[in-house]
Design a protein around this nucleic acid. Structure first.
Lengths: 174, 174, 174, 174
DNA sequence: GATGAATGAGTATTCATTCAT
DNA sequence: AATGAATGAATACTCATTCAT
């Protein structure tokens, strides 16, 4: 049972998603992780810092994913990868998205992270390159639609995303 | 300063949305509403019951809105009204949607309300009537896209929704 | 539904006995009595005053009972009546005795009421008149024994008191 | 100031007896015990559980006392020890008896503990062995009388119990 | 006499966090 | 690194009591 820090992070993201951040006590986390309550505060300055770690961990993975998409300069390929990135969320990362959505609806001061801004700029550029007259609108629409779909997936409302992905791609001829 | 019950409801939805339900104390609500803490519990059995009242109030309004849409039997008109209902959210109701989204991400046992099921069935029927071969997919895609857009609107990420509405309607020839 | 004051007293003694004085709220009393909470405070200065009224009412009845016993000057008759008074408690007065015992075990400053002092003096006098050498001890023993029996009766531990009464009387040749 | 758990128990039984269980707040207990309020709940699940601990502690001592009495098979010796056990209550245990009596008059569902049932059965058996025709009545009378006396002692109504003990023993030729 | 809305102080209990070991 | 005892502030909720009607 080494790496108790990892244990704590796993236990806490699970509980935060299931019960809500403010409705999860450090005692519960300690129990679920099988460690003492005190240990949490040796590894994380505070409960808030623990949350930040969790969010940061997810954001780090997103930077990589976004880098991979952005590296694509051919518009169709870019958009195809973009769509895939919204559909191919490994189930281990569901919790990250649910946590993110929860925090977003609690912290009103929430601002889009950098990776998100990069990504949206990329989408904008691609639609422009493809010669759409209302490229800004098209970019916005696609992004919000994909966001809605991602929410549906991680919340378990969409059980079979595959045909939906096909449909989206077909609409944009990807 | 009559109707303190209403005062309490206003104060609490505001705070719940700003700070999160579990991060808002009944004492804060009382202060914001300008009443004593005890009064909250004379009007609502518990903090949870207060939350339920808030959600119910919003759901009641949704039933009316949905009834109006469903009364339309011509597919194009139905879908046009549907799209409008996602775009025409009066700003007073922003808080309801933000609260709803927050609770959805905290209460894992959350199930779609009846009005939502009615609405989705309606969309399905309309796409079928319009002769779409993959009507189920089309319905799903439209619904999730609109949900994503609504989230964007109430979260203040979409500043001018009008051209976006036009674009959506044009895509579906409404 | 006249005489709500009486209703309040009935409801409160019942609840005080069942749940304990400090564990019974005025709201419960009001509900049980079918009156508004405010009315309790129109009829009684405070919850404590209500309790005092209840105890006083019981004490008043005891004064009469004691007067009747004391009026007897023949020792054997006195003691016979005394014993009877401990055994013949009408069931409507069970609650008074249970309340009294409860309060006695909560209010440490409790002092025996006057009727009790009168009664004990009477017992003493009678044993003296009957020529007992250790009349004080005999009086004490009889009084405490009868008290124990009364407790047993009102608590429902003694189901058939009659033969017990016979036995006591026989022991003292009454 | 070690063993704060013991400190808490001492402080609470004292206060419960003086002021009544429901009239004693956990804050008072904490102050009296010189600990923080939170600590009470680390050592006891709830205020009720604290009370149960107190009662259990007393009951444990009674089991031993009863075992000692029951080990006596000679009726006269048994009864002599029985009488002594009601008279020889060390003053440290006065509080237990007062607490017990208080709780008995508040919790209506109270049932005699096992040690009490054992003891009463023993008394019954002894009177039978001694050839009393109405042995059940005799047992009941003795038990209730002794209970009344014990109440008198722990409530401080009987200042010198010794001669009373002699008298009781003489009556039963012990 | 009677109501019921309203209050402020108080309730048991939980919280995130600290610290000696 | 790791524990678990300890804390003080905060929590949702209840209380006896008041008062305008």
């Amino acid at each position: 049972m080494i790496d108790r820090k990892e244990k704590i992070m796993q236990a806490s993201i699970q509980l935060f998603v299931q019960r809500g951040f403010h409705n999860t006590s450090t005692r519960m986390i300690a129990e679920q992780a099988g460690v003492s309550e005190g240990l949490i505060f040796r590894h994380f300055r505070s409960k808030d810092a623990l949350l930040d770690s969790l969010l940061q961990q997810g954001a780090d993975e997103m930077y990589q994913a976004v880098a991979e998409i952005i590296s694509e300069h051919e518009p169709k390929d870019f958009l195809s990868k973009l769509v895939d990135s919204f559909f191919d969320i490994p189930s281990e990362r569901f919790d990250y998205w649910r946590l993110r959505s929860q925090i977003q609806s609690i912290r009103t001061e929430w601002e889009p992270e950098e990776w998100e801004r990069y990504l949206r700029e990329g989408v904008l550029r691609m639609f422009k390159e493809m010669g759409f007259s209302k490229f800004e609108l098209e970019a916005e629409l696609l992004y919000q639609s994909l966001s809605g779909i991602r929410d549906g997936i991680v919340r378990g409302q969409i059980h079979d995303p595959e045909p939906l992905r096909e449909l989206v791609k077909k609409k944009y001829r990807l």
